[in-house]
């Protein structure tokens, strides 16, 4: 009915957080030692690019699910946009679906992202360790 709204809300939060982190990282300045005035930019942390994975997963899924809801006539291009919102019984059913299916969708996508980040971090650490071993 409107389960995609929960991951869409998470997608908005993730996008805002990602933009804020990106801004913070790009504006972060490092002062050089010995009183030098020249500053240099800090490179982006890997976390921001990993946060983009979650953003893309959530937005991608939400866009395609929105289309599915349009297909089934659960969303309309006029107010209140959700067909279930007009009827009190359907509305409570919709809210129940959002609380169960919607929340689970958001959790599953986030858990999948956490697994991706964990695997990627482990691979990066392994590569760095083997590089250090080769250099010695």
């Amino acid at each position: 009915m409107a389960c995609f709204i929960v991951p869409a809300a998470e997608a908005i939060v993730v996008t805002v957080a990602e933009k804020a982190l990106e801004k913070k990282n790009s504006s972060a300045q490092v002062k050089l030692p010995a009183g030098e005035e020249k500053t240099e930019q800090v490179s982006k942390t890997g976390f921001v690019s990993k946060l983009k994975w979650l953003r893309n997963l959530l937005w991608g899924g939400c866009i395609l699910l929105t289309f599915e809801h349009l297909w089934h006539g659960e969303i309309v291009p006029w107010f209140p946009f959700l067909t279930a919102a007009g009827d009190p019984v359907a509305k409570s059913e919709m809210l129940h679906e959002m609380a169960t299916v919607g929340v689970t969708m958001a959790i599953v996508v986030t858990v999948a992202w956490i697994i991706m980040v964990a695997v990627s971090t482990a691979v990066e650490k392994k590569n760095a360790a083997s590089k250090r071993a080769r250099e010695k």
């Binding site: 997963l57 991608g60 899924g61 866009i63 395609l64 996508v109």
Partner: peptide
Amino acid sequence: FMFWGASLMWF
């Protein structure tokens, strides 16, 4: 990402 995101949600 688009397809995997939608796949997880539909799953």
